[in-house]
Computed example of a mutant assay.
Amino acid sequence: MNDNRPAGARAGRTLSVLAGDGLTHVELTWIEKKLEHWIRFGRVAQDRILTRRTRVVSFRPGAVFAFVRWASNDFGTIVSRIDVVRAVAPREPYTTLPFVRPGGDILLKIEGWPKVAQVLAAIDAVEAEGVDPCDAAPDHWRHVHNRIAAGHQPRPYTLERHRAWLKRREIEG
């Protein structure tokens, strides 16, 4: 069947069909120097290629991932954004987010390239500690969001903080 609809329309239909499988689906697009949506970190459960420029990655409930969106026009960057999101389980409350179905628990939401660069540096710092950012405490991403939004540097995520998070998660079990 020849489908002449724009890629976004096909992807939207695909996302709505996938929505009933209990996973969180993120539409990624790459049009070099125009529109770039990518995952900075996260454990992908499924990856479907829709077109040469578009694919859908899916995350299991509870998975944490960072979704970066960037777009430009002839005059320069028009959108720079990063969201750190926890994928939700069916029937769990969520916040809607463009290109994410059904949505998620948004731990961090930052706009503007200078602030996005700060978040990317914070992610790099977590990795430098030897911790996968997916496994970092969700409260750390909320902290990073609040500090950057207030114009302050976020405190670093240390191995000590990570161990405390793991123990807390074990107790809450």
Rank of each mutant, 00 (worst) to 15 (best):
M1A: 09
D3C: 01
N4R: 01
N4L: 13
P6G: 03
P6H: 07
P6E: 08
G8N: 12
A9K: 12
R10E: 10
T14R: 15
L15V: 11
S16A: 15
A19K: 12
G22E: 11
T24V: 14
H25C: 06
V26G: 08
L28D: 06
L28T: 03
T29W: 02
T29K: 11
E32Y: 08
H37K: 12
W38Y: 13
I39V: 15
F41S: 02
G42R: 02
A45L: 02
D47A: 03
D47Q: 02
D47V: 01
R48M: 15
I49F: 04
T51G: 01
T51H: 04
R52C: 04
R52M: 10
T54D: 03
V57Q: 10
S58T: 09
S58R: 10
S58Y: 09
R60F: 04
R60G: 04
R60C: 03
P61A: 08
A63F: 02
F65E: 05
A66M: 09
F67T: 01
R69P: 01
R69I: 04
W70Q: 10
N73V: 12
D74L: 11
F75K: 13
G76Q: 07
G76P: 11
T77Y: 02
I78H: 04
S80R: 14
I82W: 00
D83H: 15
V84N: 07
V84Q: 09
R86G: 02
R86T: 10
V88T: 15
V88H: 01
V88Y: 01
A89G: 05
R91A: 14
E92I: 12
T95G: 03
L97K: 10
P98Q: 04
F99I: 00
P102R: 02
G104N: 07
G104E: 06
L107H: 06
L108W: 06
L108F: 11
L108N: 02
K109F: 09
E111V: 08
P114N: 07
K115G: 06
V116A: 05
Q118K: 12
Q118W: 01
L120S: 05
A121R: 06
I123N: 00
D124N: 10
D124V: 00
A125R: 00
A125G: 07
V126E: 02
V126M: 07
V126Y: 01
E127R: 14
E127Y: 00
E127G: 07
A128S: 15
G130I: 09
V131H: 01
P133W: 10
P133I: 03
P133G: 08
C134H: 00
D135T: 06
D135G: 04
R142I: 01
H143F: 07
N146D: 15
R147V: 06
R147L: 07
I148H: 04
A149E: 15
A150L: 12
G151S: 14
P154L: 05
R155T: 13
T158H: 08
L159K: 11
E160S: 15
R161A: 14
W165P: 01
W165N: 06
